[in-house]
């Protein structure tokens, strides 16, 4: 039950961040879009993007300081999975113009058809990938 409450609370914080970014900066809170435009070719409005990303970087150390414990991060140690997975996430989110935050949270909230399609497709492929790796290959 605790997990569900934390999930709802965390989700609400993410939603509040999305609303505030629109209210103050006029932009969609989409990490892949905000971050990818910090790389070549660099976007002219890179300053706020960098400030936002710095905020993301700053939260975990701050959390550790306040809560006196690090956030739990359990991740595979398989090098090829990490490299292939990371590459596909970066490639796919830029080709598809968004990720879980931009399409999933902001897009669905705007009732965007493009975001509905994108979210449906990435959820489906993520479910299928986990099904194949965990239940067919037994990794």
């Amino acid at each position: 039950m605790h997990d569900f409450i934390m999930a709802l609370l965390g989700g609400a914080m993410i939603g509040l961040a999305a609303v505030l970014l629109m209210a103050t900066n006029g932009s969609i809170l989409g990490i892949s879009g905000i971050a990818s435009r910090l790389m070549p070719p660099l976007s002219t409005d890179w300053q706020w993007r960098l400030a936002f990303i710095t905020g993301i970087f700053a939260a975990p150390p701050l959390f550790s300081l306040v809560m006196d414990s690090k956030p739990t991060i359990e991740i595979t140690s398989n090098t090829s999975l990490l490299v292939i997975g990371g590459f596909l996430v970066g490639l796919g989110t830029v080709i598809g113009n968004g990720c879980t935050s931009g399409h999933g949270v902001c897009g669905l909230s705007r009732l965007s058809i493009r975001s509905l399609i994108a979210t449906g497709v990435f959820m489906l492929f993520a479910f299928a990938t986990v099904f194949i790796t965990r239940h067919m290959l037994g990794a």
């Binding site: 990490i31 879980t100 935050s101």
Partner: peptide, 22 residues
């Protein structure tokens, strides 16, 4: 795009936001 992203997400469990945070 989302198909490729979904596969990558399913392989490791990190999407862009959490990747930056982690």
């Amino acid at each position: 795009g989302p198909a490729l992203f979904g596969i990558g997400w399913g392989l490791v469990g990190l999407c862009p936001g959490p990747a930056f945070a982690a």
